[in-house]
Amino acid sequence: MDAYDEDSPARREPDGSRGARRPRGGPEEGPGSGPIAGPRSGPESGPAHDPGSGPEPGPAHGPDPAAHGPEPDPAHGPEPGPEEGAGHPFPRTGLVLLSPRYQVGAAVALAVVAVAACVHLGMVFLSVAPSNTVTKQHGKAIEDWVYPEFEQNWKLFAPNPLQQNIAVQVRAEVRLEDGGLRTTGWDDLSAEDGAAIDGSPLPSHTEQNELRRAWDFFVATHDAGNRPVGTRGALSEQYVRRIALMRLDRDGTDGGTGLIQRVQVRSVTTGVQPPKWSGERISGKPVYRVLPWWTVPAGEAAGGVR
């Protein structure tokens, strides 16, 4: 039935009388009211516009900023996206993506690596630590673990400082022009180095270490009877002999006319006396270590050592 039909009860007025029939398509008006408000789709939802009155009114400078909300503050960075806001957890990463079985396997592997690292650090620590109960009982196991791949050439604590003075001395057998031989006195090479270092703001590396390291090299490669131990014994003898020849040539021991035929080296070791407040007692008697005579090759005797 048509809602605008004359006989329709829907068109009666509140007092029961029938109202006038309104034309179709026009707006319905009630007493004292304007057009019925409500959402409409299409172009009719906006205000009416007269085509002859010019362009439609609108913002003079682009879209209204209020229509899109406040601009983000650059000091606080961009606003969080939908994944970072409340109620949206971050995506899962790492081990949580694995299945429970693989998670257990990864945890076991990490535990094994951690235990192995702790054991290795403990073994290395014991290898450089001073002798103690653990190293005495399990020294073989510690050595098997550390050597040779993880050998450490340092100690956890400073060793006992050297309490000796070691002086290296040399003398030579010189052939004179008349064919005779002359044996020189002992020349203290360590004392010469000490005199060059004392008072020098920048002592040279040679003066400080050359002779000392050469003698340490010789002692480490020879036994108490001055016999070579290992393949580096002959090299250490040649090293000490050449240093002695250079020093003798520099000091003019051959007199400028003779030739050095042989050299002999010895060390003089004296103990450093302890302080007065110490109860320790050390003998002040020097200990000598005299090496055999070394024949000087012809090339070195003629000044071939540089």
Rank of each mutant, 00 (worst) to 15 (best):
M1L: 08
D7G: 03
R12Y: 15
P14Q: 08
S17F: 05
R18E: 08
G19S: 02
R21E: 04
R22N: 13
R22H: 04
P23M: 13
P23A: 15
P23L: 13
P23K: 12
E28R: 15
P31H: 08
G32I: 01
P35G: 14
P39E: 12
G42E: 07
P47A: 04
A48P: 06
A48F: 13
D50A: 12
P51Q: 04
G52T: 12
G54S: 07
P55D: 12
P57Y: 03
P59A: 06
A60E: 11
H61L: 09
P63I: 07
A66E: 10
G69Q: 10
P70A: 00
E71T: 02
P78W: 01
E83S: 08
E84I: 11
A86V: 01
H88M: 00
P89T: 07
L95A: 09
V96M: 11
V96S: 15
P100S: 01
V104Q: 11
A109Y: 04
L110H: 11
A116W: 08
A117V: 05
A117G: 10
F125G: 01
A129Y: 02
T133W: 05
T133S: 12
V134H: 03
K136D: 12
Q137H: 15
H138G: 11
G139R: 04
K140P: 15
I142T: 05
I142L: 09
W145R: 13
P148S: 03
E151S: 15
W154I: 11
L156A: 11
F157Q: 07
A158D: 10
L162M: 14
A167Y: 07
A167D: 05
V168I: 01
Q169R: 11
Q169Y: 06
Q169V: 04
V170W: 03
R175M: 09
T183G: 01
L189Q: 13
L189W: 06
S190E: 13
S190I: 02
A191V: 13
A191N: 10
A191C: 09
E192T: 09
D193C: 12
D193A: 15
G194Q: 14
A195L: 15
I197V: 05
P201Y: 08
L202E: 06
L202V: 03
H205Q: 03
L211I: 13
F217A: 05
T221R: 01
H222L: 14
D223Y: 09
N226L: 10
R227D: 08
R227V: 02
V229N: 08
V229Y: 08
G230P: 00
R232H: 02
R232T: 05
G233I: 02
Y239G: 10
I243W: 04
I243C: 00
M246V: 09
T253D: 11
G258P: 05
G258M: 02
I260P: 04
Q261G: 06
R266F: 07
S267Y: 07
T270I: 01
G271H: 05
V272A: 11
Q273H: 11
P274K: 06
K276L: 05
G284Y: 02
G284H: 06
P286N: 02
V287G: 10
V287D: 12
R289H: 15
V290T: 07
W294A: 02
W294V: 05
W294E: 10
A298S: 04
E300K: 06
E300P: 05
G303E: 06
V305H: 04
